[in-house]
Design a protein around this nucleic acid. Structure first.
Length: 855
RNA sequence: GCCCAGGUGGUGGAACGGUAGACACAGGGGACUUAAAAUCCCCCGGGGAAACCCGUGCGGGUUCGAAUCCCGCCCUGGGCACCA
């Protein structure tokens, strides 16, 4: 009987059998190794999934299915990053309650993932906006608070003095409030922070042992931004006041011809000379008016103003002018610098603009003349007192020691990383479980009172007061102080969404625990995540926060590991063809777009030459989305899976190409036909029948096992599919040639289905049962390659003369060097190409090649 | 500007320093068919009748041998960007 791949019939059938058998339950059988594989925690958006999103769900599923067959206990779960701004914004737009909305979106995602046959254990599903979950997010907040890692502090925010509200950076247009046109100022406002900076060094150090893409590690290192330097004191002349400056180039200190303070530096108002006050104040308030965005977006044209006062360079005793400029940031180092125009590009530009002296104190070691600014550290000191002549690195050490010995400073490591601002004046998040009491200060909500429930409200839009909408609910706000019993007020800010996603992978291990966030034994068994899969866009947010929390939990004794994600892989994007047309008069193009975006229907109606096609990421707004439903309906889930696996290496961006999905269907049909035709003569008991013969077919079988097993482990799914195709072709040829025994063919067919099972599970199960085999492929044992069957009887040897291929010969495998050399030198092609030349030497690589080198 | 990835046939891509182009897609030819689709067989980097020659972004180098390693460039994609 000739079989065909009929996805519409077999795929729903097998999916319901899997559900019936509770096939995807997490096994926690003693004595087996564990494998924990998950994709990133998605926010279920209203647009639903596209086939592009499946680029990480399918491979993660393949590896988890393979590990299950390899007799691991596997944890493969899914949940919803439900809290946060994207959900709230969408709910406001669609006028729905965010909770109800997210639940319905999540249901759509679940359905979409199910029809592709992804093997999640849905009994462990998590929703971060569920009180049973955020209760523990709040508990973790209190844990961090108790450890001094959560603090309430002042931070400069954009403030509109007329509306009495903070504004998001996006709400400031040209330095003006978007509502009333009043100039926005920076104002210190209380916010909640997590003290991630305490972990800066450990976050760098522990990257070392992780199997992560090198690019992501680099991004984290750069983000944390460690730099070594010296922090030291400058005295303001005739004032008794001092400030500290941080520099990584203490070796250039003799070239410091001025100092610069950040406009926000507290000393500015104290030291400014009365004659310069008006000018300085104007500059400071102008700088305050700029949002960070504008300040960073502007061209690097330097601005600044002189304070009229001087500071003494502790190395030279010389007074240098103190300037104010916004290129010095209050948030980094000390907010004050020594400026060395000869050896720093920014200081150089500033000095040139304002006519400040430029003094060279570093020169190349070979004494050659260079153009300034000379920023290299390869050089030696000049005109630097006792330090003159030293190499830069040596000078840095000695000058650091000199500063320490004088008691005016010390070598210091600085990090670019800032503390993690977690409070949001928004409704849709986990309420921060703190009570403000006039008498007792910040009082944690007692653990037994958790969760602090997010009250159900009619209107949850952000208020004009700049406070969270929760501040308008007296029943929520007014409470008794848990400490003194007096009247107190609840914190009304909620936590940003990244708090929820920083620990969900621990909750999967123990999702129904109502006494703890996660049981020690459960996380001890499952953690760390062995395989974490997602896009590269979370490099410095989620992946950094989750690492920080894991370390804090380790310090608390809740975990015995210091890193949550041992192996991380980033999937490539999937692009879809997207049509654009030429702009008409009066139409403006969006930056980076080749024309005006049009729909597929419009494109079909226009003359082809008027349409420009471009590959774009699938998105609702681009109108180029192919949904899993459409693709499964049209091609089948197994074909879709194989296509996405086969098209390119996992990390690479691919282009959605229908013809190639057809190729996957064609392959599946070849497998169906082959298995269908062989079914009647299939021998379940091939193990007892198999003899010493059939080495050729069996070699193909066992090589396929070896190759596909290692390819799946290494995330090389495209070559795994290719190996499966090659094996199928070889098996077909072997059957056609009629030289193989039924036992060897049966072994090959059974093996083929098992190797196919993680990638095309519906078809594997269908054909498995067609052969009369019991159970599901997922519960069958993964085949093992027999090393004795991997070696070939014969080897093809390349014969080269001077590195050029001249012939190939087939010899019995295992032939030794001497014999290979003898055969090669006697070969007619070798003789022909070495004629009249001296043979200088012969390179023999047994099993591979012989290279005859002439001289 | 700095930091990461990448540049291989018409296309997607293979290739422990060892026969470049596996496996596919598209295309061409043939078989089957009244015909088409599907399927099966053959061809498919360039030049050449062939022997051979040339080919992995460009220029050098190391090596018996380089797509692969080293140096210097050029492009493409991504990230960071006044961090002293």
């Amino acid at each position: 009987m000739s079989l065909r791949y009929e996805p519409g019939e077999i795929e729903p059938k097998w999916r319901s059998k899997w559900v019936e058998a509770n096939l995807f339950r997490t096994r926690e059988e003693p004595g087996k190794p564990k494998f924990y594989g998950i994709p990133y925690f998605p926010f279920p958006s209203g647009a639903g999934l596209s086939v592009g999103h499946l680029k990480n769900y399918i491979p993660t599923d393949v590896i988890c299915r393979a590990k299950t067959m390899q007799d691991y206990n596997v944890l493969h779960a899914m949940g919803w990053d439900a809290f946060g701004l994207p959900a709230e914004a969408e709910a406001i737009k669609t006028k729905r309650h965010p909770g109800e909305m997210v639940r319905s979106y999540a249901a759509t995602y679940k359905k979409q993932l199910d029809i592709v046959g992804i093997s999640y254990d849905w009994s462990r599903e998590i929703n971060s906006s569920d009180p049973d979950y955020y209760r523990w997010t709040q508990w973790i907040f209190l844990l961090l608070f108790r450890r001094g890692l959560a603090y309430h502090g002042e931070n400069a925010a954009n403030w509109c003095p007329k509306d009495h509200t903070v504004l998001a950076n996006e709400e400031v247009e040209g330095g003006l409030c978007w509502r009333c046109g009043t100039p926005v100022v920076k104002k210190m406002l209380p916010q909640w922070f997590f003290k991630i900076t305490d972990y800066a060094q450990r976050l760098i150090d522990d990257l070392e042992g992780l199997d992560w893409p090198e690019g992501i590690k680099m991004q984290q290192r750069n983000w944390i931004g460690r730099s070594e330097g010296v922090r030291f004191e400058w005295k303001v002349v005739d004032s008794g006041k001092t400030f500290e400056a941080f520099t990584t180039r203490i070796d250039t200190v003799f070239g410091a011809t001025f100092c610069v303070l950040s406009p926000e530096h507290p000393l500015v108002s104290e030291i400014t000379d009365p004659a310069h006050r008006v000018e300085v104040e104007a500059y400071v308030s102008r700088a305050a008016r700029l949002s960070d965005q504008d300040r960073l977006a502007t061209t690097h044209e330097k601005t600044g103003v002189f304070t009229g006062v001087y500071a003494t360079n502790p190395f030279t005793g010389e007074p240098v002018p103190i300037w104010i400029a916004d290129y010095v940031l209050m948030g980094y180092g000390t907010g004050a610098i020594m400026a060395v125009p000869a050896h720093d590009e920014r200081d150089f530009a500033f000095a040139q603009k304002f006519g400040l002296p430029i003094r060279q104190v570093i020169e190349p070691s070979d004494g050659s003349r260079v153009e300034l600014p000379f920023v290299s550290e390869e050089g030696k000191l000049a005109d630097s007192g006792d330090f003159t002549g030293l190499e830069c690195d040596d000078a840095q050490r000695r000058m650091g020691a000199w500063v320490s010995s004088k008691g005016i400073g010390e070598p210091k490591v600085n990090y670019r990383l800032r503390d993690w601002l977690i409070s949001r004046q928004r409704y849709w998040g986990a309420p921060i479980p703190i009570i403000h009491c006039e008498k007792c200060g910040l009082v944690p909500v007692p653990e037994e009172q958790l969760p602090v429930l997010l009250p159900d409200v009619e209107s949850y839009e952000p208020t004009s007061t700049g406070e969270s909408p929760l501040a308008n609910i007296p029943e929520f706000v007014n409470v008794e102080c848990p400490k003194c019993g007096g009247p107190a007020k609840r914190e009304t800010d909620t936590m940003g969404g990244f708090a929820c996603s920083s620990w969900y992978f621990l909750r999967y291990c123990d999702p129904h625990n109502d006494r703890e966030a996660f049981g020690h034994e459960k996380v001890g068994y499952w953690m760390p995540v062995d395989c974490y899969v997602g896009g590269a866009e979370h490099a410095v947010m989620h992946l950094l926060y989750a690492r920080f929390w894991t370390k804090a939990f380790f310090d608390e004794g809740l975990l015995s590991i210091i890193e949550p994600f041992q192996t991380l892989r980033n999937q490539g994007m999937l692009l879809a063809p997207t049509p654009f047309r030429k702009p008409r008069k009066g139409e403006t193009l969006k930056i980076g777009e080749p024309g005006i975006l049009i729909s597929y229907e419009e494109a079909a109606e226009m003359p082809a030459e008027d349409v420009t096609w471009r590959w774009e990421k699938m998105s609702k707004s681009k109108g180029n989305v192919v949904t899993p439903e459409e693709a499964v309906e049209k091609y089948g889930a197994d074909a879709l899976r194989l296509y996405e696996l086969f098209e390119a290496p996992f990390e690479q961006t691919i282009q959605w190409t229908e013809e190639r999905v057809q190729g996957a269907i064609r392959f599946l049909n070849r497998v169906y036909k082959l298995v269908g035709d062989a079914a009647s003569s299939f021998d379940k008991d091939w193990r007892t029948q198999i003899g010493d013969g059939d080495r050729e077919l069996r070699r193909h079988t066992h090589r396929a096992i070896e190759k596909i097993t290692s390819d799946v482990d290494e995330f090389s799914f495209n070559t795994a599919v290719a190996a499966l195709m090659e094996f199928t072709n070889a098996l077909g040829d072997s059957i056609k040639a009629g030289k193989s025994s039924l036992a060897a063919i049966s072994e090959a067919i059974e093996t083929l289905l098992l190797l196919l099972a993680p990638m095309a599970p519906h078809s594997a199960d269908e054909l498995w049962s067609h052969l009369g085999l019991e159970g599901f492929t997922l519960e069958a044992a993964w085949p093992k390659a027999d090393p004795r069957l991997l070696v070939a009887d014969e080897a093809t040897i390349a014969l080269q003369v001077d590195g050029k291929l001249r012939a190939t010969i087939v010899v019995p495998s295992g032939m030794d060097r001497a014999e290979l050399e003898k055969i090669a030198l006697a070969h007619e092609k070798v003789v022909q190409f070495t004629q009249g030349k001296t043979i200088r030497k012969t390179i023999v690589v047994p099993g591979r090649l012989v290279n005859v080198v002439t001289g």
